[in-house]
Amino acid sequence: MNTPSLTRIFLAFLRLGLTAFGGPAMVPYIRAMAVERKGWLDEPSFSLGMSLTQLLPGATAMQVAAYVGLRARGGAGALAAYVGFGLPAFLLMLGLTVLYFSARDVAAVTAAFTGLQLVIVALILHAAVNFARRYLDTLASRLLACLAGVWLGLKGNPILAMAVVCILAVFLLRNEQGGAPARPTPTGRGPLRFAGLLLGVLVLFLAALYAVNPELFRLGLLMVKIDCFAFGGGYVSVPLMLHEVVEVRGWLTQPMFMDGIALGQVTPGPIVMTGAFVGYAVAGLAGALTAAVTVFSPSLIILCAATPFADRLVASPVARRVLRGSLISLVGLMAAVAVRFGLSVHWTVAQAVFALAAFIALRKKVDILWVVLAGAGIGALAF
């Protein structure tokens, strides 16, 4: 296998990050680049990494990128890949967020975001349907999903719902077995030491925020909590952020939060980059930077710490059941979010027709970027 420089890793993932629309849909492109074209990893190593990242919290494509960097050049390679892949999304989100908050009173902008909010309702419902068709295959799984959805509908804490469903899943989903035995990963203890180093840096960063600006500290601590519980990919962050940012702290209104999700869909990268939008709303540029750093750091630390034990984790039936429980709870949480978002819209016949058309387009596999852009354009003209 080839050993690339850190600069090559950074630039390769920076190029991928510029077109990283669709979240997990980017994983085959990462594989084609890292395994087939550049030979940084062999196929068994990459397959093991894909299985591992599915068991860990964080945005799937970001985690796979970090895993490739980790196997290619150790901890520094993981950081180079992670930053390179996420940097385009952050910069574009930051630019659009600044424009959003400076032009919110312009009628055309307001109308455009009305159209985008309709698309977001359709998008969340579409995601809920996809997850339901994939993971709700038994009566027990459907009941657990309903439990999580009803709890969030009653404005309960979604993290508590996820924890309860995951615990129940360990006992109820006995048919969920571990993955196929994987070959051991000869990474040594380097990734574990690097995880400890990153954890120390994150703690020092949070301590510095607490000393300088307690508001930024609270923002950073919240984003750390959200990332630690984002099992199943970036979409899990939506109900978590909705609860914490809108209901508990009141930093954003629900329509503003929907606008942030819409901007996250216009830009490449994971939907969890909405955290930068939240951060800017709370504390400007410093808030956006703080949120972006803290909403991605924990999952990178966990990935580095888990990689030396990847073969055992992938083969663990308990880990598989916990992951399945997280995904089942996500179905209920996403359905509840779709209902909540739908209730916040002041519906007209035209808006209902447009939202239905957006949902049908997504079900027909029209690229999400085109649906979002159409929502903005039609909203500016018609609403």
Rank of each mutant, 00 (worst) to 15 (best):
R8Q: 13
I9H: 03
I9R: 04
F10G: 09
T19F: 02
F21D: 03
F21C: 02
G22T: 12
P24C: 10
V27L: 00
Y29G: 14
R31S: 05
M33N: 08
M33I: 06
V35N: 11
E36Q: 04
E36Y: 01
E43K: 06
L48H: 05
G49Y: 00
Q54M: 09
L56V: 00
Q63K: 05
Y67H: 00
V68G: 06
L70V: 01
G77P: 03
A78H: 03
A81I: 03
F85R: 02
A89H: 07
F90Y: 08
F90R: 02
V98E: 11
A103S: 13
V106K: 05
A107Q: 12
A108E: 11
A111D: 09
Q117G: 12
L118T: 13
I120L: 09
I124E: 04
L125A: 15
N130W: 15
R133M: 13
R133Q: 13
Y135H: 14
L136W: 01
T138A: 05
S141M: 12
R142Y: 05
A148F: 07
V150W: 15
L152T: 12
L152K: 06
K155L: 15
G156T: 06
N157Q: 09
P158N: 10
L160Q: 05
V165L: 13
A169N: 07
L173E: 15
P191C: 02
L202G: 03
F205L: 01
L206G: 00
L206T: 00
P214M: 05
L216Y: 06
R218V: 06
M223I: 01
V224C: 04
K225I: 05
I226T: 11
C228T: 13
V236M: 14
V238H: 06
M241C: 06
R249A: 09
R249M: 04
Q254N: 07
P255W: 15
D259M: 11
D259H: 14
G260T: 07
G260E: 08
T267M: 11
T267V: 15
I271A: 15
I271H: 12
T274E: 02
Y280G: 14
A281G: 14
V282D: 10
A283P: 11
G284V: 14
L285P: 03
L285T: 06
G287K: 12
V293I: 09
T294H: 00
S299R: 07
C304W: 00
R312M: 10
A315M: 04
S316K: 13
R324W: 08
L327Y: 09
I328Y: 06
V339G: 11
V345E: 10
W347M: 07
T348L: 11
A352Y: 03
F354Q: 12
A358Q: 02
L362M: 14
V366E: 10
I368D: 15
I368P: 15
L369M: 10
V372S: 12
L373K: 14
A374C: 07
A376L: 15
I378H: 08
G379H: 10
A380N: 11
